[in-house]
Simulated scan of single mutants.
Amino acid sequence: MMAQPPPERFLPQRLSPGRLAPYQAAAGSQRAAVDLYRWNIAVSAAVYEGLHLLEVVLRNAVHDQLVIWHQSTGNSGSWMDDRAGILEDRARKDIAIARARTRKPSPTEGHAVAELTFGFWRYLLARRYQDNLWRLAVRHAFPHLQPQTRSVVEKPLISLHKLRNRIAHLEPVHRRDLLADRQDILTVLGYICPDTRDWYQTGCRIPDTVKERPHTR
């Protein structure tokens, strides 16, 4: 069997020198950069498990409360129709795009919810919605947040949204405090449902994967 060439021989070309450059700057050599790149893939996967769960739990919790609020108004249709004119243009466009993506002639709320991005739900916690959506509905999605201060939830979600986008775009995360990111995930899950937080924590791979980080200068 022919000996395989070391990865630093072929990976710089396949990944591109520009993509590998930040890893080499952190690691000090091309061989170490390749090891760091492999670890970045592994830790990104471990972190994404938590982001996956958080996104699904967050959107369902917020959606459920918006449904309850909408029903209390006596209006027909869905909260996504925004008959009260609360949502900003960007949010209304996101909903229209989500409904179109379902490729269904009459998409249900559930179909559209699944198509809306993490960013959509994160922006529903922005200060602009403090006196309407937060006060009327969204705060009830976080029953274990006491006192129910919107900014306390928004702050970790801003950071986690940025992290999610970095991972989704295959960017380096090796300079982040990933244990702090894990804590943010646990914290927000705990505001929504401590049982779900504890279930995730028992199988969370982030701490063990962080320990496997290659040494860098």
Rank of each mutant, 00 (worst) to 15 (best):
A46G: 02
L51G: 00
P22Q: 06
E115S: 05
E8G: 06
S159N: 14
W79Q: 00
L15R: 09
D195S: 15
R19V: 01
A96S: 12
P6F: 09
Q65V: 09
Y129K: 04
V47G: 06
R14L: 13
S76Y: 13
H161V: 06
D177S: 07
R122F: 05
R135D: 04
P147M: 09
L54A: 04
N40M: 12
E171W: 07
Q148H: 10
D181N: 08
V152E: 12
V188T: 04
K162E: 09
A27Y: 07
R90C: 07
Y123L: 15
I86F: 04
S44C: 03
S72N: 04
Q148D: 10
K155Q: 14
E171H: 05
F120N: 08
K211E: 12
D94F: 01
F118D: 04
D177Q: 10
M80A: 09
L160Q: 01
A141V: 04
E88W: 11
H52F: 12
L178A: 06
H169A: 03
V62E: 01
W39Q: 05
A112C: 10
C204I: 03
P7K: 09
C204S: 10
R166P: 00
T149Q: 12
K155C: 06
A21E: 10
P107V: 04
W121H: 03
P105H: 05
M1H: 10
S151T: 14
L58V: 01
A25F: 07
L157S: 00
Q4Y: 14
D94K: 06
D177T: 09
D208E: 15
S159V: 08
H169T: 06
V62F: 01
E115A: 09
T117H: 03
V47T: 09
P12H: 07
N60Y: 06
R166E: 04
L54V: 04
Q183L: 15
D35A: 11
A27L: 04
R19K: 10
G18R: 15
V62W: 02
P12N: 10
S16K: 11
T117R: 12
R38N: 13
A98L: 07
T108W: 11
I158F: 12
T108L: 13
W79I: 05
K155V: 06
L53W: 02
S151Y: 10
D81K: 13
P7C: 08
P147D: 01
I206L: 12
G119M: 00
F10D: 13
L179C: 07
L53P: 00
V210D: 10
F142N: 01
A46T: 03
A168N: 05
K211C: 11
H215R: 15
E109V: 14
H70V: 02
G18P: 05
T117S: 08
T108V: 09
R31A: 15
W134Y: 03
M2R: 15
V188N: 01
V152C: 06
N165M: 01
T117P: 03
K104S: 11
A26K: 01
A26F: 02
R14Y: 10
E212N: 14
V153I: 13
N75T: 06
D195V: 15
I158G: 11
V210R: 15
I41K: 12
E154I: 03
H215Q: 15
D89G: 13
L125A: 07
R150D: 04
L170A: 12
R122P: 05
W39F: 02
A27C: 08
V153K: 00
A26I: 05
E55I: 15
V152L: 07
A98R: 07
K93H: 09
E212Y: 05
